[in-house]
Amino acid sequence: MSLDTEIRVNSLGFAKPESETRVVVAMSGGVDSSVVAAKLKREGYDVIGVTLQLYDHGAALAKKGACCAGVDIHDARRVAEEMGFPHYVLDYENIFREAVIEEFADSYLGGATPVPCIRCNERVKFKDLLATAKDLDADCMATGHYIQRFDGDAGPELHRAADANRDQSYFLFSTTPEQLSFLRFPLGHLKTKDETRALAREFGLEVADKPDSQDICFVPDGNYAGVIEKLRPGAAEPGEIVHADGRVLGRHDGVIHYTIGQRRGLGIGGLSDPLYVVRLDTETRQVVVGPKEMLATRTIPVREINWLGDAPFTSQGEWHLSVKVRSTRPPREAVIRPISETEAEVELLTPEEGVSPGQACVFYAPDSSRIFGGGWIHTGH
């Protein structure tokens, strides 16, 4: 064996042949994870596909076109058969309900706007599934997420995807350094989604033209309130719609039907100036509305911080980074002041509108694609 052969590092970063590198691929049944599995198998890796059943597919919570639904399990299994690698379906329904759905319901009832996809990655896919991958003696676990992982001087780093329109870093900020050491993201370097679909066609996969899932998997047609009422009967108690100056403007059928920053569908027509939901008071069951300028926020309390910087989070009095407070918004300059290893006060240099408890505040390097982690926005109480 030549020296070149001995030290060659494969595409997943291991100094051994692909055939001796076992990789578990988390397969949702969509085109992205299917391409990852097919690509790695084609390259000669020892691939094992794993699909999670996350909820009862016959229940009213399930919807056509969401990830992890019955048809997706079938699609993932078919890809495995076509490409010739083993595939397992794991029943994670109870874990998913306890770790994701129940908190989603409680957060909504508390007036927050939760992001269950982040909790699913954090508490199910990158925790229990990752542990299962290790039990299968895998060298690593690969997913179809659009994000990049690079080996830096101090260890693996998380970076935004090459395609800014597909970047999923906001939903993966809570990935720990230990998890990052074991994870691989083979699609993060692709420039467009078209490249992924072209690969699917090249591999002869029937999912090549399958539509992307858009909504939260257990929320039919984006009807959050309907799901909450199903999970928490009687949760939609009526109350008052109140102006910030104290005037009662109308009635509502439940705080769960409203979100911070909402303008349409408030049920208080006939007013000359547009009003927005500026606060949800679950104790008094009041929806508080006001002018747009009341939505502007400069200081954000953040907790449950996952820090991905090289130096300890509390080693500096403040960090000058950029932050995202919604997945659809660009990063904005901010000063992050640590309170503890998991808490901070974030000061935005330019105020943001519609900052809501329950959303994530994700930290980015201002001058590179690197992600420095993030935390959860709360009320400060």
Rank of each mutant, 00 (worst) to 15 (best):
L205G: 03
I228Y: 04
E202R: 06
L129V: 07
C217Y: 00
D273Q: 14
V79T: 13
L109D: 09
V302P: 01
K63N: 02
R232N: 05
P116K: 05
I300Y: 10
M294D: 08
D139G: 03
P114I: 10
V325K: 06
E343T: 06
T175F: 00
L275Y: 07
G373P: 01
P366E: 15
A164Q: 12
R78L: 06
C68W: 08
E237V: 15
T196V: 15
R97I: 08
L308I: 06
L231F: 06
G250W: 02
V255F: 01
R201N: 03
D72L: 01
L266C: 13
A162V: 14
G84M: 10
M294K: 12
D253E: 15
R166D: 03
S2I: 01
E195R: 15
D72F: 02
E81T: 04
G29E: 00
G204D: 11
L190A: 00
A138V: 13
C67W: 06
M83E: 01
G110M: 09
D209E: 13
L205R: 03
L109N: 12
R332W: 06
R370W: 11
D72E: 04
S272M: 10
G222R: 12
S327R: 09
D46I: 12
H159G: 07
E81I: 03
L109W: 09
R232T: 04
K230L: 02
A38V: 04
V362D: 08
P312M: 03
S107L: 13
F313R: 01
D209A: 12
D367G: 10
P17Q: 00
I73G: 03
L349N: 09
T113F: 06
H243N: 14
R149M: 14
P156M: 08
G375S: 13
R123N: 08
T314I: 09
Y108N: 03
Q262T: 00
Y92L: 12
L90N: 03
L130H: 01
D281M: 11
L308S: 02
C140N: 06
T132L: 15
C120Q: 02
L136A: 11
P351H: 05
V100C: 00
A208M: 03
A365C: 10
V25K: 01
H159S: 11
V362T: 14
I371K: 02
G58Q: 14
G270P: 00
D91M: 09
W376L: 14
C68Y: 15
K41N: 13
D135M: 11
S33R: 07
N121R: 09
H243K: 07
Y92F: 15
D135F: 04
V277Q: 14
V248W: 12
N94H: 12
H159V: 01
S315M: 06
K41R: 14
G290C: 11
D46R: 13
H378G: 01
T328H: 12
D151S: 05
P291G: 13
R97A: 10
D221P: 01
M1C: 03
R329H: 15
Q148D: 05
A133V: 12
D310E: 04
S11F: 09
I73T: 12
E240V: 07
V23S: 02
Y88F: 13
G354M: 01
G144T: 09
R160Q: 15
A133H: 12
E43D: 15
R279I: 06
I7T: 15
S340D: 05
G226H: 11
N121V: 13
L349R: 13
T21Y: 02
I95C: 03
G44V: 10
N10V: 00
